[in-house]
């Protein structure tokens, strides 16, 4: 509609604020952060020197860092799978012709805005080993006897985090999948039904392929958000027990702002960035189908 040639000032004035904000607050910090990863920068030091790959060497030699990576991949991927599958199931159920869809959707969707800090507090109470309702429930159905120290067993604590992440993210996937489902022309489904295709056949051959790109994109967005999330590990588990819930976001934050080791934190952050880029590239090829 407009062209840069005819409306140069309008063009510039539209982009100037974003250029300033995004350039100063996103692009510069990232570029500068990558640079800092090759230095020994720290606000506790008066000068900053170039140290080459020193930070990376230090990081990769640290067995704890590899544990952190393992925890991160485990917690994020399991949470993503959980919330995607559950969100999809809820969306399919809601789209099956029942009434009160709006009500159910609203009820579930409220969960999506429960503040993380609240989840951190609440999960501590739900999974409290003595008085938590989770342990009470498990005891009452006879699965466990006595107490299960959810937050003190290395095998259990990551699951507490995973439950929190998945719970919070199900509504988002549900809403996106539901909107996509409602966007599928009814004729397609009806035609298949009249042809005698059972529900699961239709699901497999018609619905899921149509939903794949949208749901997989939503899943990727959630996975990225889980990577960034730090409230639960920082407030609820503090990375423990024995580092079992120490994830990349917590590790990087602590390196930067409790140890004030900017160089090391920048190296971890840069590694994280590269990891996400590679992962997204592979994901794009494997999980998304090219639009025909």
């Amino acid at each position: 509609m407009y062209s840069i040639k005819r409306h140069p000032y309008f063009f510039m004035s539209l982009f100037a604020p974003a250029l300033f904000l995004v350039g100063g607050l996103l692009l510069y910090p990232i570029v500068n952060g990558i640079w800092l990863s090759f230095t020994n920068a720290s606000p506790l030091r008066p000068t900053t020197d170039f140290v080459g790959l020193g930070n990376y060497v230090y990081l990769f030699e640290d067995p704890q860092f590899w544990d952190v990576l393992g925890n991160t991949v485990f917690i994020c991927s399991v949470s993503t799978i959980f919330c995607t599958v559950l969100g999809l199931i809820v969306a399919l159920l809601l789209d099956s012709g029942i009434r009160f869809v709006g009500f159910f959707r609203a009820a579930v969707f409220q969960v999506w805005v429960v503040p993380w800090i609240v989840i951190a507090i609440l999960w501590g109470w739900l999974f409290n080993d003595e008085w938590g309702i989770v342990n009470h429930f498990l005891r009452s159905i006879g699965v466990v006897e006595g107490q299960m120290a959810w937050l003190f067993e290395t095998e259990l604590a990551p699951w507490v985090v995973i439950f929190a992440y998945s719970w919070r993210a199900v509504p988002f996937v549900m809403v996106i999948a539901l909107a996509a489902l409602q966007g599928i022309p009814k004729e397609i489904q009806e035609a298949a039904e009249i042809d005698g295709a059972g529900y699961f056949n239709r699901l497999r051959h018609i619905l899921l392929p149509l939903l794949q790109n949208i749901v997989m994109t939503a899943a990727l967005l959630e996975a990225v958000r889980f990577l960034q999330e730090v409230t639960i590990p920082l407030v609820l588990t503090q990375g423990g027990p024995i580092g079992a819930t120490n994830v990349l976001s917590l590790f990087t934050y602590k390196a930067a702002f409790t140890e004030w080791d900017f160089g090391l934190a920048a190296a971890a952050g840069t590694f994280w960035l590269v990891f996400v880029i590679i992962f997204a590239g592979i994901y794009n090829r494997v999980a998304l189908r090219k639009s025909a």
């Binding site: 506790l44 704890q64 003190f152 423990g240 027990p241 024995i242 580092g243 409790t258 140890e259």
Partner: peptide, 17 residues
């Protein structure tokens, strides 16, 4: 040491173990 708590933090996982 200025890194007093950072030092203790390194011991925490081993202490728990």
């Amino acid at each position: 040491h200025p890194k007093f708590y950072a030092i203790l933090d390194k011991v925490v996982p081993e202490y728990q173990r």
